[in-house]
Nucleic acid binder design. Sequence first.
RNA 1: GGCCUCGUAGCUCAAUUGAAUAGAGCAUCUGACUACGGAUCAGAAGGUUCCAGGUUUGAAUCCUGGCGAGGUCACCA
Length: 591
Amino acid sequence: MQDIVEQIQQTLSKAFLDLYDTEIAADTLKLERTRKEYPGDFTFVVFPFLRTSKKKPEETAGDLGRFLVEAGAIRTYNVVKGFLNLEVDTRLWIEFLNQTGMNLDAFGKRSQNGEKVMVEYSSPNTNKPLHLGHIRNNLLGFAVSNILRFTGHEVVRTNLVNDRGIHICKSMLAWMRLGNGSTPTSEGMKGDHFVGHYYVLFDKEYRAELNRLKENGMDEKEAEAHSEWMEGARELLRKWEANDAAVRALWKQMNDWVYAGFDSTYRRLGVDFDRFYYESDTYLLGRDLVMEGLEKGVFFRKDDGSVWADLTEFGLDEKLLLRSDGTSVYITQDLGTAQLKYDDYGMDRSVYVVGNEQDYHFKVLQLLLEKLEKPYAGGIYHLSYGMVDLPHGKMKSREGTVVDADDLMNEMHATARARTEEQGKTEGLSEQELDQLYETIGLGALKYFLLRVDAGKRMLFNPEESIDLQGNTATFIQYTYARCRSILRSVEFVRSEIGSTDPDPLENALILHIYAFPHKVMEAAESLNPSVLCNYTYELAKLYNAFYNQLHILREEDPAKRALRLNLTHIVSELVRKNLNLLGISVPERM
RNA sequence: GGCCUCGUAGCUCAAUUGAAUAGAGCAUCUGACUACGGAUCAGAAGGUUCCAGGUUUGAAUCCUGGCGAGGUCACCA
């Protein structure tokens, strides 16, 4: 069966040739969904083609509409100003549903296209637990990876763990001085929270020390320079770099505690990775690339020995690549890591899921790789997402406004529990099943809340109000799924062909929305934007609910209508499940 | 200050490859359960799309200027 829209486009193209003697490629003739206040399935806007037709909008639309009907591409049409509204023969829709239902798993899915994409996300520091911002990052990276796989890309999901540096040394020092040999086990704490606790203690001690020094007459800078706590941390970093056995052992111990904590958070969030990179392995990389750039003459050395790139031709500044003492800076190791990843996987594209505060950094990274004429430079893509703001601005650890990831998941679980108990519809579920259900609903709501907003935009989270379970939420969509399943279970649904019947307008709207799915999931993949899929799925659930409330399914006596409605129920439920799964959200059979 | 984002209903968000009367949800108000699941549905009310110009048959969308918010411009990562 030929695609319905393509068929119309090709006939339109022929119409332009026959009527106006003009060749226009079929796939450039855009068809939109007809607005609901007018009759029609698709709308062709003729305004851009008045120069070719040399006629008034209404006449042009009439010409084209007549041609389409005579060619048998549509059933009927109507013209409103320059808008040509087309109605498709309902037999085609029934045929579409029968074909879609026959192979639902493959609906919208693309076969392997040979493109390999790396998606790096999460990339945490190992000195403190994950917070709300990390959750947005993780969900985006995971969902984007799923969507890319579904649309035919080979995907490698990576996590570049920042496991070394001055921040980890701060936690280490505080633990050495104040820990008394305690461990996560002895304190009954999750490892990442345990280590984060010492990071906070360091900061407290450091600030207290600065205040003492300032009271003794030093200014801010002097005090910082004389801080014994900070010097202790720097000393640990030097020893770490010199491979001091004791320091390395403590460092490994603290990181392992953190990893155990991260692991359980990742597992609960449901995200996963194919490959971990660690900065302790990669932080020395990149210097070779800088040397290479010097030889090629695309970078330059200043009198003090430091190495720079001149990016003023791109409207940016000069960028430091190696310090005067020859050591690396952040961007240097990112250059090296980019090369390492490419050597390891040879991917066509490399997507970095990183907050928009690093827009400048990634612009520079790509320019530098282009200057070095690296073949992978063009494939570097910064998937920049907006910060999650609180009502009074950013999360600030010093002000204690950081929304902890684990706490938030617990709260969502509790909210889901309270709401479910209010509903009182869970007879016969075991304690374990109930717990699973609260997790499905609570985390679903959290994930959908974070994914439904366009990734590039900043968004607001109000900790005072718990995340909604009504309206445009995962709960609403999950409820629609559970309801569909309840119907299908009750008749022990087995798919059968739908016979000839005229869909009701509510059914028609639902069919058209189902039909749009392959296009929508491609849009989500191309724009690397899961919110497209959220909005699509919400709309799908809404259309189904409207249909459900108005029309009988099981009580319908006309066999063709009943088959149509049962098939719609089946297709919607599977599509909902598939989409939520792509977004990392699970669905309950009952709720 | 330079550069980059963003500004849509009281609130949170859609629509940004230019198209018909700018759409949802929350909150507010009014209706619908002798049941295929009311975590739902139907309806009401709510808009100078920050402001001023410009391009266009047509602008929330593109251009210019202003106002407001955020980010960034380290020999930090």
